[in-house]
Design a protein around this nucleic acid. Structure first.
Lengths: 292, 292
DNA sequence: TCCTATCAAATTGTATCCAGTTTGGCCGTT
DNA sequence: AACGGCCAAACTGGATACAATTTGATAGGA
């Protein structure tokens, strides 16, 4: 596992729903992502964030660093007790995480860490490809010398973290690399989109990565910087494409994990012998995605 | 204005944060968007949605159809009274709308319909271009004859709505066209992303469209279908690119609207003669986007 | 012994209540 | 008369209390 998770940059720079500027007439509720021009301020001290944001950050990090593996139940009461707040704040946090796709929430069933299917994984990686190729192309056009230095510093940190065995920080920084690149491209919606995809990629990796492949990708990041600095758009796009492809190659998406969608598994059965309750399942599934 | 707003398909098919499937082992909290293969069920009756979803839908539609113009204050108490629920439910709804970028929420100031800046608009349209070009390419590869028929029916409805003067429905259907295309491409994250961008485009149009340009785009949609049916990916991409470009051309993004970011307007002033409170503004603006 | 139905514990969803913040108005001072 | 500060009303943020739903367990019957 390597190079595709990210946490801090995304969390810190985005006091999400209720930050904002106090005296502005214009206003875009798009998550406030600082442009690279103004000292991105990657990791604002957690202390000075609002409680809800702090909790969000902690849970987010825990998920990305896989201390909370996919499928883990996230009880509102338990979380509230842990962080010393009422369920109100926890619910707000969970709603945000759900919206970003890292947890799934079911009516009257609570929240759990998302367990993307192989098909989900395929779609997410493809979406990342679409977004990040556009980002790297734009970034190659716009990047300043200062920003190149920032990226290089980031990769240096990333490498240092991995080399001194601090895998957690390494994973985080490797995600931040992709985020910082997105900020360079100066497109807030795209950056926000990629941020979510990166975090979901983390879940995918923890589920589908083949055991042996513990290759870290800071060297690919360094290579990417070189190409971007060179200014060749198409070359940069190809480099990013290859980088993302390598991520996909380390996954085993061929065989779906054991636990898949039950209704799909038993789709051929006309009407199960089960209790009448089976009906409610079908009804609840009305507006839901159904691939194939 | 035409062809870029959308409401129903997105709302209806997406009992957002707390829908989900009841008996599935796999689970992806990505918004559940039905695939085109299974009768998309574009407009499930509002009656059978949960209250929170119903309210969300009503507000969402009102914003997209510009019955709630940008800048409108959305008081929790007022909304709660209108829909006959407590503020709790309203807050949940507002959080969701904020996540999707159609409203902006400020700490202790409440929610208001978003007023994207010209720069926001530029970024949103560019993001749409990135996403929709990829979508149309993929859709051209995968589309079935059935899906082509669905798209044609949709455009027919769209045209009929406009021709009988039902502009509201027309606007909705014209957005649904883009959404349906995204569903054909069979990539849930991309479809979700585009959904948000489409709704934000609606806000942009209501702010920046030049008065004269009341051209409706069902003919361009029909043309797009033809090209897609033809199967030429590059041709389809070019057609979509042109279509999106036309949207941008109808906007006046050159001169920022009157009300822009105050801090930017008075940036050249060293330190306003104002009360000490000016400081808090600067502090609150710490983690916020700062273009240029 | 196995199956079914009823019931209770647990947990989420919703409403209400209290606290903190903002904002506009009023009053005193200069 | 104008400016600055104080105060109260309005509204949002958070916590607690109550209602609804799920789910596992237990008792009854075939």
């Amino acid at each position: 596992m390597s190079c595709l998770q990210g946490a801090a940059i995304m969390r810190g720079s985005r006091p999400p729903t209720n930050d904002t500027r106090p005296l502005s007439g214009e206003n875009m509720s798009m998550p406030a992502i600082p442009s690279p021009a103004s000292k991105p301020r990657l990791r604002p001290r957690l202390d000075q964030l609002k409680r809800a944001d702090r909790i969000y950050g902690h849970v987010f990090d825990a998920i990305l660093e896989q201390r909370l593996p996919p499928g883990t139940k996230l009880s509102e009461e338990a979380l509230g007790e842990i962080f010393g707040v009422s369920r109100t704040v926890i619910r707000k946090t969970l709603l945000r995480l759900a919206h970003e796709g890292v947890i799934s929430v079911r009516h009257h069933h609570g929240a759990m860490v998302a367990t993307p299917s192989a098909e989900d994984a395929r779609q997410i990686l493809e979406a990342r490809r679409v977004a990040e190729l556009a980002i790297v192309r734009q970034a190659t056009r716009m990047i300043t010398r200062e920003q190149i230095t920032e990226l290089q510093d980031l990769v240096a940190e990333e490498r240092a973290s991995f080399e001194r065995g601090d895998r957690g920080t390494g994973i985080r920084l490797s995600g931040e690399f992709h985020m910082l690149l997105a900020l360079v491209a100066n497109n807030a919606p795209l950056a926000h989109f990629v941020r979510g995809l990166i975090s979901q990629t983390s879940l995918i990796i923890s589920q589908y990565e083949v055991p042996g492949s513990n290759i870290c990708s800071y060297d690919e990041h360094a290579q990417l910087i070189k190409v971007i600095r060179g200014g060749g758009e198409e070359q940069a796009v190809r480099a990013m494409d290859a980088h993302l492809a390598h991520i996909g190659e380390r996954l085993n998406l061929g065989a779906e994990k054991a636990s898949t969608d039950l209704r799909e598994v038993f789709a051929h059965i006309v009407n199960g012998p089960g209790r009448q309750r089976a009906r409610s399942a079908a009804a609840a599934g009305a507006g839901e995605k159904k691939r194939t």
